[in-house]
Simulated scan of single mutants.
Amino acid sequence: METGTGRPERYGLVAIILHWVIAVLILFMIGLGLYMDHVPLNDPTPLHQLHKSVGIVTMLLIVVRVLWRLTHRAPALPQDLSAGQRVVAGGMEGLLYLYQIILPVTGWLMVSAMAMPIVLFGLVSWPLIPLPQSVMDSGYLAEIMPDVHNWLAWTFGGFIVLHVLAALYHRFIRKDQVVDRILPRHGGGR
């Protein structure tokens, strides 16, 4: 069903499934990353391979989600939102998408710079990003990428908290239907 703006009232099933599957995977990755924070990167623990495996799967799903979003219109925001609120909402959406792409790529770049193999779930080898030999020899990229990846993860976590707070604001303070647009339907409605 569409609104008077030519936009749907809510996200479609594919967008909803992608949103929630990716959200669960990201929360899992954050928890695993925090747990692994005390494990050296060169430790052969299976947790590193699990983190890399889930990260690659999440990255691929995010690519699908971005392509889906580029080809399907998002539901309209409530008409009583101010221009500033619309800019903030659009900016936050853009930042969340950007971080969802940059974070796994920096992880991939980090393990590539360290020449650490990626074996998805212990079954399939995933290629490393080909880097010039001079970059590999210098070791500089391998040295800085863990900090870059970690910093991005922490800032992404902050944006996720803001995203959840905005959802709670819409649900419990504004009491509008913004959150309903991305929730799965069950039974006869909400």
Rank of each mutant, 00 (worst) to 15 (best):
W151T: 13
L165N: 06
S82I: 02
A89I: 02
S53F: 07
V57S: 12
I160A: 11
W68A: 08
L162I: 13
L61Y: 03
G4R: 14
Y11E: 02
G139E: 01
Q177I: 06
V124P: 01
L183Q: 10
L47N: 09
I102H: 05
G187T: 10
Y35T: 04
G187I: 04
G107A: 07
I16A: 04
P132S: 01
R7A: 03
W154F: 15
A113M: 00
S138W: 00
V66C: 05
W68C: 11
L13W: 11
P146S: 15
L168P: 01
L81T: 09
I101K: 04
W108T: 02
Y97F: 14
E93P: 00
G31M: 05
G33Y: 10
L13A: 11
V135A: 00
I160N: 06
W20K: 01
D80Q: 14
R174Q: 09
I26A: 03
W108R: 03
G189T: 10
G91F: 09
S138N: 03
I118Y: 05
V119E: 14
F121L: 11
I26K: 00
I30S: 04
L183P: 04
Q79M: 09
L98H: 10
G158D: 08
T71Y: 05
I129V: 15
I56Q: 03
G84I: 01
V21M: 00
M36P: 02
V161P: 02
K175E: 12
I173Q: 12
